[in-house]
């Protein structure tokens, strides 16, 4: 099977290792991957700002660029949802999207639903906090959102659970938004940062060593907060975990792929893997929780 790799523009420029990891995972499962280099951006930033006229040409471009492929795979729930759920607004009845809306898959969804991967294999002996990115969860239904009462498979955690040693930690709010939200992060910067800090606290109290998500944009936001506030938590894209990348020990996180690569080499020279850190923080949460009811 030959698939077109659809790489979100910010991953291309700022998180190349996420795309490399995606290529590696797909190739490991026998998929021939092609990256058409004329691709740029799916138009989501423009669309979510309301600028339909700015988004439309990018949607039409994407349809042409990915026309030769039967499947298109993207390491982002948000960009996949843009194509699948929101491109309707940009194609008239006469315009052909070459099936792009129905043939575009998020990476985990593709592995789970199309390739029907049973087991990822490898080992990742760490406590993982799974961040359910909103668009993957509520627009692609990769899992079961806590608001709805319909049981669904959680495709991302199902894949992650097949990795040896990987432990998913329970969060108090399993699927609250991290506050990235595209231009929301800048336009409503204060609320956005407050939302991100609360999400991070939840992962810390659960004893996670690393936040793993299917969308690097959520992680970029939380990583920015973690670094600014010097908090001991890493972020990794799910593709990096699936590809077998080790937990970055560098405070600066997963994006410094050169240092990660260097560590890989060093790890091979060492007799055993270094012991992992397990950050635990007592939080001052729920002090107020019991007092709240009487105030209404």
């Amino acid at each position: 099977m030959r698939v077109g790799l659809f790489v979100p523009c910010y991953i291309d420029q700022f998180y190349p290792d996420v795309a490399v990891a995606t290529v590696e995972v797909l190739e490991r499962f026998g998929v021939e991957v092609d990256f058409p280099t004329s691709q740029t951006c799916c138009g989501q930033p423009m669309a979510n700002t309301g600028c339909a006229e700015a988004a439309r040409p990018l949607a039409l471009r994407a349809a042409e660029i990915f026309a030769p492929y039967t499947h298109v795979v993207c390491p982002s729930g948000s960009c996949t949802s843009m194509v699948r759920n929101h491109y309707d607004a940009y194609f008239s009845d006469e315009e052909d999207d070459h099936g792009l809306r129905s043939k575009t898959f998020e990476l985990c969804e593709f592995l789970h639903d199309v390739l029907r991967v049973e087991s990822i294999g490898g080992s990742f002996p760490h406590r993982v906090g799974l961040h359910q990115s909103c668009h993957g969860l509520r627009e692609l239904r990769l899992g079961w959102s806590s608001e709805t009462m319909t049981a669904r498979d959680d495709k991302v955690s199902r894949l992650l659970r097949t990795i040896e040693g990987l432990e998913l930690v329970p969060l108090k709010r399993p699927d609250e938004c991290c506050g990235f939200g595209g231009t929301f992060a800048v336009q409503e910067a204060d609320v956005s940062a407050a939302m991100g800090c609360d999400r991070i606290e939840d992962h810390l109290q659960a004893g996670a060593e690393v936040i793993v998500a299917g969308d690097m944009s959520c992680l970029m936001h939380m990583q920015g907060l973690l670094r600014r506030n010097r908090q001991p938590l890493q972020v990794m894209h799910v593709a990096q975990v699936l590809a077998g990348r080790p937990l970055p020990s560098d405070r600066r996180g997963a994006i410094r792929e050169r240092e990660v690569a260097a560590e890989e080499v060093a790890a091979n020279l060492r007799p055993a893997a270094p012991p992992s850190r397990t950050p635990r923080r007592e939080t001052a949460e729920s002090l107020e929780a019991t007092k709240l009811q009487g105030d209404v």
Partner: peptide, 24 residues
């Protein structure tokens, strides 16, 4: 505005498309 409360991502030396050109 991004940087008021957050660090920017650390820019890598090469983009994915550059990696792709060299490796695939």
């Amino acid at each position: 505005t991004w940087g008021r409360r957050r660090e920017l991502p650390e820019p890598p030396r090469e983009s994915f498309r550059e990696w792709w050109k060299q490796n695939r």
